[in-house]
Design a protein around this nucleic acid. Structure first.
Length: 220
DNA sequence: AAAACGGGGGC
DNA sequence: GCCCCAGTTTT
């Protein structure tokens, strides 16, 4: 049996059309007004395991008060907790924002490092966060794999991988470079509205006909 | 490999 | 009421 293959050109084109209606993700909103690498790092840290509407409001409240390592490091943890509530893990994230700010001041001249290794060395920064900072903050080429990108890339059969990191490297080989930047943010909004984790709305999906629906047992 | 961190929202 | 979420760290 021949494996169905989703047409990447058409997939991305249709997703762009579909995105017009949905709300832009927080990172895009911030990037659109010229976010600094530190702002991208801080808001990405807030976003972990938290829905983007909640993250967006919290990031705006925080960055309006403090948007540099100096300013964050000078704030009491309790004050940051209050600003970012109710993002998930807010007490941990408040401490981490301060900790990272201090490390940046002590070890990196108060700037966000622009290398993967140095970013991963920061507490609470994993591959997803580091990639987003490098791509959105420093304009690097790369693919940022989160749960949406991982799930949808496998569900559609664009790649076949077990971990997000494997997905990142598989996409680097499979995906034409011109799609690297739009791919992540397109899939995130698509993954929040149509291709949701459980019981996705396949009837509203532009590539429904070609999709092997790898992990889908029920669809709507 | 799996639990844990935390609270809001969907169903 | 139960399950899931723009992950990462620790066991």
């Amino acid at each position: 049996m021949r494996k169905q293959v989703v047409d990447l050109d058409r997939f991305v084109r249709e997703l762009k059309k579909a995105r017009k209606k949905s709300q832009a993700p927080v990172i895009t909103l911030i990037a659109n007004r010229g976010a600094t690498p530190f702002e991208i790092l801080a808001s990405t840290l807030l976003s972990l395991r938290t829905k983007d509407a909640v993250t967006d409001a919290a990031a705006r409240r925080l960055l309006a008060v403090a948007n540099t390592p100096e300013q964050i490091a000078a704030l009491p943890a309790q004050k940051i907790e209050k600003l970012i509530y109710p993002v998930g893990f807010y007490p941990t994230k408040a401490k981490r924002l301060i900790e990272i700010s201090r490390i940046l001041l002590e070890r990196h001249d108060g700037r966000v490092p622009d290398e993967m290794e140095a970013l991963l060395a920061l507490p609470g920064v994993g591959r997803k966060t580091a990639n987003l900072v490098l791509i959105e903050g420093f304009g690097r080429d790369g693919i940022c794999v989160d749960t949406h990108v991982h799930r949808i890339s496998n569900r559609t059969g664009i790649v076949t991988t077990r971990t997000p990191e494997e997905t990142e490297f598989a996409l680097r080989k499979t995906l034409p470079k011109k799609y690297w930047k739009p791919y992540n943010e397109l899939l995130v909004s698509y993954g929040q509205t149509i291709c949701v984790p459980v019981s996705p709305f396949c009837s509203r999906c532009p590539v429904e006909a070609e999709c092997p629906k790898q992990d889908v047992t029920r669809s709507r």
